[in-house]
């Protein structure tokens, strides 16, 4: 497929663009992608809801600052390991801060490590969350690309419903069901690929 690489010029990912200079418009876009994901993780880590937005912002600032360091490490960790570490340390900082503020009134607070999950567990958790986040975003994109029932057809066929039943229920030919199912899946993978390419730093293999 040399012709394809010829047609599609190599692009910088969104992450790389955001990193390239301060206040690059790509940064805002990147935040929009990351913010919901990081917020969810922070809630899991026990950050109070009222503070989640602030902590999230703090995490993203750190992420941006550390990104260059991370990239240039000769033997760097996996991207998501690095990301989970970043989020966790920010959450710990927040807990410590909370503790200092509450010491005078309440001495019964549990140990932070008890509250926070073990790092390996958290990494797994993030892995799953990130996966769902990416596929979810891809699904949303599909809705703008395919019309009507395409996503339904895909979902129902994944659940094991027969093409005949779907075609009858949605008033379309059985052949269309097969084609849609196939195309939606293919496109879903494609969109997920695009998102990952934009939002992740490739791990060295």
């Amino acid at each position: 497929m040399t012709s394809q690489s010829h047609n599609l010029p190599t692009r910088l990912s969104l992450l790389e663009l955001a990193q390239s200079e301060k206040n690059h418009p790509a940064w805002e876009e990147l935040l929009d992608y990351y913010r919901p994901f990081i917020s969810r993780i922070l809630v899991h880590l026990g950050v109070a809801k009222s503070d989640v937005d602030d902590v999230c912002q703090l995490t993203l600032v750190r992420l941006w600052k550390d990104l260059a360091n991370y990239q240039h490490q000769p033997k760097r960790a996996r991207f998501r390991s690095w990301l989970s570490h970043l989020i966790r340390s920010t959450a710990v900082d927040w807990h410590r801060q909370q503790r200092r503020n509450q010491k005078m009134v309440d001495t019964d607070s549990p140990v932070i490590n008890d509250i926070l999950m073990a790092e390996s567990e958290l990494e797994q958790r993030i892995e799953v969350e990130w996966r769902d986040h990416i596929i979810g975003l891809a699904l949303e994109r599909l809705r703008t690309i395919f019309s009507g029932n395409a996503v339904d057809v895909f979902v129902r066929s994944v659940e094991g419903e027969s093409a005949a039943s779907i075609s009858e229920d949605l008033n379309m030919s059985e052949e269309s069901v097969y084609v849609l199912k196939h195309r939606v899946k293919k496109r879903l993978v494609h969109e997920a690929y695009e998102l990952r390419r934009e939002l992740e730093l490739p791990d060295d293999v």
Partner: peptide, 22 residues
């Protein structure tokens, strides 16, 4: 979105792996 994710859960991993840029 969440319901759709839940319903296609069995193939989520597979999809995610296929979409790995690496």
């Amino acid at each position: 979105r969440d319901e759709a994710l839940k319903r296609i859960k069995p193939i989520l991993n597979d999809l995610f792996e296929q979409a790995d840029p690496a």
